[in-house]
Design a protein around this nucleic acid. Structure first.
Lengths: 339, 339
DNA sequence: AAATATAACGAAAACGGTTTCGTGTTAATA
DNA sequence: TATTAACACGAAACCGTTTTCGTTATATTT
């Protein structure tokens, strides 16, 4: 086991000072050609690489970014991470991933762990518990300390920071209009509770489309799941009783599960009943029939978030100006609707 | 913006030395009750938290673990990360995630980035390119430097380190036997190229089961995808020509896609043709019919890997003894086979 | 020859902690 | 009263860098 070599080691071996070694490796003009050659050759031979931690301490820059998300076993978040990771890596940053598991406390603990020097900034999506409690003090504290934060997808307006979202309202609006255009009359919505910022926006878009049409809104055509989990019985009862001819679901799982239920009843998709979901994951692609979805472009979202964060981290100026980027969703047409 | 407070700040304000503050905060016996109270109260008031980087530099311990995986948009890897993250977090460690994207070069670069002090150890799964090239020098260099490595799932025997795998051979063996027990005669295998350690093991288990039965092996019943990507046409042709009555697939996607193909032909699952896949992801659960799979217990694998790594990191002893943990797969029975 | 410029390098501080060792003061002991 | 022990604290080294500011030769200028 050969331990890592340090500047001090090189200095000792070559009988020069540590400062000389440091400068020589940086090709400083101060150092003679001879010495530089000697030092650089030695460093290469022993595969010298500066210690990241020491550099971090010196520069007060870690080149790490902290990503705090509710869950990782969700296609959408996964794609966002991938976008973040790719972009960040290209700019020399590493990504530390922390999971809040939809828990407020874990979110707080994770942020505190990372906020003490481990990272240069945060990219995060709020846990449902945090959104439910509307307690954002942990975020405010961090921003007050001058640590940049980018919020994506599940955001709040109570914190001053950069934000990236997709236009969920528009996505739902377009999806609902698609149904309307295709002559659907009984358009249902299966969603989660409103405290989730995204569900709220999607519900709004759904309502808007219906209000603008001559169909009007039937409140009983909206099914709200109390938790993030799927209540299979609730969906079954709902579909049986309301007999919609089109269903908009706020995620893939609700949609795919619902499709199976109605197929078991002998209904034809999309003739008898059409479906549109949110999130363009594997499920939508490989479902039978394949599911039309409002694609959220998670990877793009990750890239944009990472760019915003790193730009802020690296900007000298202490601008207190924040922006919110709104990405356009796109409807990915598949076989669960007519086309 | 209130900047973080340091020991030095506290020392200045309270007119004591930095050492005294440090000791007081650690409740050292050396320091008087009075001083400790004073310091601790002040620290709490100003929300003092020690700087992680400084501590890392001093201790030569970062409390970070590096996870290098081929891809994150794969259910299996995602669950592994979750297992790692949960376990590591509980022991006070953070997880830095790097994606090799199945590229040898990226794997090398990522490891080099992290190996210079950023992490205490690696947990990784090899990229397909690395397995194809059989070049493991980057791993050997790291282990020679005394940085612990745990390899999971996609491993190699050429590197001395701890390893965690599931018994892929056993999983395939059991799945194939399940088909045999149910009277299936023409059992096909859809897999990827053999350089992937897991595909190889699964193929072996498949062969073993068939050899032990009186069915024997028909090489033409094995379809090997050249890349990781799915060649839809190849599958279609294969299924049409060989007309198997049971298909074992090395992942979910191959299986779900195949199921759709045969359903379009009017075949009944599982009566006419049965399916078993690998990886217990969303796809299997929500496919129609739901897919029987060999569950790989990714989360468990992550936990075990993290435990092995952290135990090694924290053990003083420089034991050069490595173990390979083999996790048992389980067959999750769903509607794609008779039951 | 004296003054000055330049080249090449080293000492030391700094980043923010931890820890060892020393030291001055007071109290207990001989 | 002199010696010792206990107590409470500070100085300084250390982790591995970077960087400023000397400092010493040597070379150039007047």
């Amino acid at each position: 086991m050969k331990a890592k070599i340090t500047l001090k080691d090189i200095a000792r071996e070559l009988e020069v000072s540590i400062s000389t070694v440091s400068k020589a490796l940086k090709n400083s003009e101060e150092i003679s050609r001879d010495t530089k050659d000697k030092v650089q050759a030695f460093a290469k031979l022993y595969n010298y690489k500066p210690n990241n931690i020491a550099i971090s301490l010196k520069n007060k820059r870690t080149k790490n970014i902290g990503v705090v998300i509710p869950d990782i076993v969700h296609h959408f978040f996964t794609t966002v991470i991938r976008g973040i990771e790719k972009y960040a890596n290209a700019r020399g940053y590493n990504v530390i991933v922390c999971l809040s598991e939809e828990s407020f406390d874990k979110e707080v603990i994770n942020m505190e762990m990372l906020a003490n020097g481990s990272i240069d900034g945060f990219i995060m999506s709020l846990s449902s518990e945090t959104q439910e409690k509307s307690d954002y003090n942990h975020l405010k504290e961090v921003t007050e300390q001058g640590i940049p934060v980018v919020l994506f997808d599940r955001i709040t307006n109570e914190v001053d920071c950069d934000k990236v979202i997709i236009d969920d309202e528009l996505g739902a609006y377009q999806a609902t209009n698609k149904f309307i255009d295709q002559g659907k009359k009984k358009i249902a919505l299966i969603t989660t509770d409103d405290y989730l910022s995204v569900s709220k926006a999607r519900t709004k878009g759904y309502r808007k489309a219906l209000e603008e049409s001559n169909l009007g809104i039937d409140e009983s055509m909206i099914l709200k799941m109390p938790s993030m989990e799927m209540d299979e019985l609730a969906i079954k009862t709902f579909l049986n009783e309301k007999e919609p001819d089109a269903v908009l679901c706020v995620n893939e799982i609700f949609a795919v599960y619902s499709m199976r239920l109605v197929q078991e009843k002998g209904l034809k998709i999309p003739e008898d009943i059409a479906f549109i979901g949110f999130t363009d994951g594997v499920l939508s692609k490989y479902a039978n029939p394949s599911l039309t979805v409002v694609a959220q472009h998670g990877e793009k979202m990750g890239e944009v978030s990472a760019k915003m964060l790193i730009d802020k981290v690296e900007s000298e100026a202490e601008e207190e100006t924040y922006q919110t980027k709104i990405l356009e969703p796109t409807l990915v047409i598949r076989d669960s609707i007519a086309h």
